[in-house]
């Protein structure tokens, strides 16, 4: 008896099924983001810019200061919890002698300075940006990481929090290779 009017008409279940598949798809997307987002960058070169230095707001940093050496460029914000997860890894990479620059996206310079004093600072240059540079780099959200060579050519672009695995598997070999080829040119 009960089963008779449990879902008598199967077509009425259709909205539910479509809705659930949409949710599953979106859930998948939400969790897929960090792992599938190693991508060829759509922007070829680091754009020209002149933006304030987070550590001394009176000074600016230009593209020329960044160039000349292979480097990681890490885009992050102080309000973004995922970005802070990456911090220990960046410190470790820094200790191994790799160069890291930061682009601080829409963040409070004072807070960040305080925070870096406690946590340690992996960044050679930390550029304060309210969206102009990040937009021209095609950044979708924080954190994202770029690998650029001495000429500012973008070699790798990774969306999401950098992990140890991604660093060792992809970034480190490319970093070594880029440094090597720069030395040969010199």
């Amino acid at each position: 008896m009960m089963t008779d009017y449990f879902f008598q008409h199967k077509r009425l279940l259709l909205p539910f099924l479509i809705f659930i598949s949409l949710v599953v798809f979106l859930y998948h997307q939400l969790n897929q983001q960090p792992t599938t987002h190693l991508r060829p960058s759509q922007v070829q070169y680091l754009p020209q810019f002149e933006l304030p230095n987070t550590f001394d707001l009176q000074q600016t940093i230009t593209t020329q200061q960044i160039l000349g050496k292979t480097a990681l460029v890490h885009i992050w914000s102080h309000w973004c919890t995922e970005c802070t997860i990456t911090h220990p890894l960046l410190m470790q990479i820094k200790k191994q002698g790799y160069q890291i620059h930061g682009i601080l996206y829409r963040s409070d310079a004072h807070t960040v300075k305080n925070w870096l004093q406690i946590q340690g600072n992996p960044y050679t240059y930390l550029i304060l940006d309210n969206g102009s540079l990040t937009t021209s780099l095609g950044v979708k959200g924080t954190p994202e990481t770029f690998l650029i060579d001495a000429t500012g050519h973008i070699i790798l672009h990774y969306r999401g929090a950098l992990t140890h695995h991604i660093w060792q598997e992809h970034f480190q070999p490319m970093y070594e290779q880029a440094t090597h080829s720069t030395q040969i040119k010199k």
Binding site: F6, F7, H9, L12, L13, P15, F16, F19, I20, V23, L26, Y27, L30, N31, Q33, S77, W79, C80, T81, E82, G141, T142
Partner: peptide, 28 residues
């Protein structure tokens, strides 16, 4: 807005609970 995957996950769970239940009730 300031992005945070935790928020996304929460909202998605809430969305699927509210609307999913409603559609199930609808089917029934």
């Amino acid at each position: 807005f300031a992005n945070d995957s935790e928020r996304g996950t929460y909202l998605l769970c809430f969305l699927s609970l509210v609307i999913g239940l409603a559609f199930l009730l609808y089917a029934y």
